[in-house]
Design a protein around this nucleic acid. Structure first.
Length: 113
DNA sequence: ACCATGACTCCAT
DNA sequence: CATGGAGCCATGG
């Protein structure tokens, strides 16, 4: 089990029609400072089609400059297909940002009981 | 084995 | 408010 795997799991937790930031994924993965590694984990994206990396954006809601499946355009199309409006290559986090706080609590229960 | 790079983000000045 | 530095983990030469 590597940090990458944790990232993939966290990304898979993102519900449809919502988006999450690298910071959130990094936090769920266990390292709130590893946001950079999260991007890299998605960059290599060993499981395209299984990992909804298109639901991952930066803290500004900006899409990825090098989407693994095809490109930034592909990510936008996927998001729009889920009902997420994309403007100028970015989404409204205030509208679509996924509330991972609930998941954090679940993790805490598993960790500490 | 070592050095450099990368879909980022927070902190200090 | 804007700029610069550090942290994280894995991959490639």
């Amino acid at each position: 089990m590597t940090f990458f795997d944790c990232v993939y799991q966290a990304v898979c937790m993102i519900p449809k029609g919502r988006v999450a930031t690298y910071g959130q994924i990094a936090l769920l993965a266990g390292n709130p400072r590893a946001s950079r590694v999260v991007g890299y984990a998605l960059h290599v994206n060993p499981r395209p089609g299984v990992i909804p990396c298109h639901r991952v954006v930066n803290r500004f809601g900006g899409l990825a400059p090098a989407f693994a499946f095809g490109g930034t355009d592909a990510q936008q199309r996927l998001l729009e297909g889920e009902g997420v409006a994309v403007k100028n290559g970015a989404v409204d986090l205030k509208l679509y940002r996924w509330d991972s706080s609930g998941v954090l609590l679940e993790i805490g229960e598993k960790e500490g009981g």
